[in-house]
Amino acid sequence: MRYERPETIVQATHLLAEADSNAFVLAGGTDLLVKMQSDGFEADLVVDIKSIAGMGDVVEADDTFVIGAGVPCAALGENDALVAAWPGVVEAANLIGSTQIQGRCTVVGNLCNASPAADSVPALVAAGAKAKIAGLGGTRMADVLDIPTGPGKTSLKKGEIVEAIVLDKPLARSGDAYLRFIPRTEMDIAVVGVGINLVLDEGGAVQSARIALGAVGPTVILAEDAAQALVGSKLEETALDVMAAACSAASHPIDDKRGTVEFRKQIAGVLARRAARIAFDRAGGN
């Protein structure tokens, strides 16, 4: 196995582009290193991107936050401005693994590992986050929603690296939240995850909503019908009922070791209802 630690993103993309097969990007390593311990896994090339300038930074500009691909999730929780702006995104990132894992794992890694149960992804999708992607031909932007294409699969082309997540500064009267269900209290993997971002109008009713569901399909699901059900409401019970039912309907889970279809569909509605109340509260709704 070859280990490379390039110092520029251009070198990194070239290394990946020129690799024959079994090439992996190493950031926090909390997924990759675990995989490498199993007898069936083979890596020919590992490209460690943590020495590339900027990868470890959270940059706050006038309109955006840019989170580098090497930023550990724990660092997000220590960035007061980010916590104030996108508390749901930060909460999701700080649910991954354990305290020790959070010191290494990254949201970009969480996204590119493409697990349907990734915690940070529904929160990012609800927040309308974009991915900044470096490749041989330069840099492009893509919606986070469009990165995962199936379990373990992404839309990234050979040689491409997600170098940062870009979050717009939140609009006035907005709030986000993420909740997941796990059978234990921590150190577990989402059976269902729900990210919600609400923007209220001046009258305190929901003006626009984004609801993203995790672990109930092969990729994160943007539940547009469910979001629509909240628009114009102040989270009255009827609106929440319609929204919860729409979340259940949008869920297409499978029966597996982590839960049944029936359970997951039901929980998607329950969590969406609870997350909506938190987001509404954060947006200043009452």
Binding site: P183, R184, T185, E186, M187, D188, I189, D256, K257, R258
Partner: peptide
């Protein structure tokens, strides 16, 4: 066996 690991074979953690 579908869950031969501590991720999906869930023994309690301290906070449980």
């Amino acid at each position: 066996l579908q869950n031969p690991g501590f991720l999906d074979y869930r023994i309690p953690v301290c906070s449980d």
